[in-house]
Each structure stands twice: as structure tokens, then as C-alpha cells.
């Protein structure tokens, strides 16, 4: 990654911490107020592809960590083109009790299914999302199943093991 973008980011967002795990990654940790403006800024700077939105459950700290992974298409951008493929990982933390966050669908349209998925599997509510309806799951769950306090073994015992085997009535 070019050093210019890092300096510019540090200048524009002084509260964001920028670290790097390897040469092709840049990890930007920001507070949740500045995420939307940061996303809009890096989109203009060439990272115009939102690869994934993910979520990490930090149950001991009582927080969810939303992870936005972005990469450039390397097209029509002098700063980016010619460089090797780089990812920009944007992390932010939100409260775990009654989790809610702003939608980013007005910046990246393809965020829609990712946010629906997180809403379904982690229970994160995205304000402003137009179609926050179930995506994958067939059954209703008390606790969203990807949270760490969801006990899969107890759930399997309660639901799947309660389905009886087929009895032969004639015998």
C-alpha cells in the first residue's frame, strides 16, 4: 500500500488507529461514530469493493466487533494501480446488549445481504436498512445462533433428538 493513503487517513481521522498485520493488510480501528465517514472516504480513495461484513462476539467484554473488509478494483486509480492486491480491514465495536448500528447500504449497495445475515445470525439491528428480513434460517431461534452464549449441543438435544424414529405400528 502506498504510504500516502495511510498518512492522509491519519490526518483526516486522528482518532483511528492504523496498524498492519502483514504487507497486504491495513487494519483501521475506529470508533463507531466515524465509521460511516471513514467508509465514504476510503471508497473515494479507491477501495470501491466491499468484500465482506463480518462480526465477532467478544462476550467477556460485552461487545460486538463489526469488521468491514474492503479491497480496490485497481481501475482508473493512479494511487492504487500497479500495487499488489491490498485489503483494508475496518473494525469497530458496538455494545452487545441490544446491538444496533447504522446501515452502510447507501455507500455500498452490496452490503444488503451481509447486513441481513448479521441481523439473522447475530441479532445486530441495522437502522435504515430497507429489507431486514430473514435470509437463511428456517426456524425461529431464541438467541441468534452465532452468538457465543448459544448452546448448540443443548439445542440439538432439545430439537433434533426429540424427533422420534419411525415406529412400525404393525409389529
Amino acid at each position: 500500500m502506498n504510504e500516502g493513503l495511510k498518512e492522509k487517513l491519519e490526518k483526516a481521522f486522528p482518532h483511528a488507529a492504523i496498524t498492519s498485520m502483514r504487507d497486504t493488510d491495513y487494519v483501521v480501528t475506529a470508533d463507531k461514530e466515524s465509521v460511516l465517514s471513514l467508509l465514504a472516504y476510503v471508497k473515494d480513495a479507491g477501495f470501491d469493493h466491499l468484500t465482506l461484513i463480518s462480526c465477532v462476539d467478544w462476550i467477556d467484554e460485552g461487545e460486538f466487533e463489526l469488521v468491514y473488509i474492503l479491497s480496490p478494483y485497481m481501475k482508473d486509480n493512479e494511487q492504487i494501480s500497479g500495487n499488489e492486491k491490498i485489503n483494508l480491514i475496518l473494525k469497530t465495536r458496538i455494545a452487545r446488549g441490544n446491538p444496533a448500528f447504522q446501515t452502510v447500504t447507501h455507500i455500498f449497495e452490496n452490503a444488503e445481504p451481509y447486513e441481513r445475515e448479521l441481523h439473522e445470525l447475530f441479532g445486530v439491528h441495522f437502522e435504515g436498512h430497507k429489507r431486514l428480513i430473514p435470509l437463511f434460517l428456517e426456524r425461529a431461534y431464541d438467541i441468534p445462533p452465532f452468538r457465543k452464549d448459544f448452546d448448540t449441543r443443548r439445542y440439538v438435544k432439545e430439537v433434533f433428538d426429540n424427533i422420534p424414529a419411525i415406529q412400525d405400528i404393525k409389529a
Binding site: 431461534y141 448448540t152 433434533f160
Partner: peptide, 10 residues
């Protein structure tokens, strides 16, 4: 798994 059936013959 929370979403995969265990015994198809049921």
C-alpha cells in the same frame, strides 16, 4: 450443528 438434520430416515 444448529441447522443440519441428524437422521434423514426420520
Amino acid at each position: 450443528s444448529y441447522n443440519t438434520i441428524k437422521h434423514l430416515d426420520r
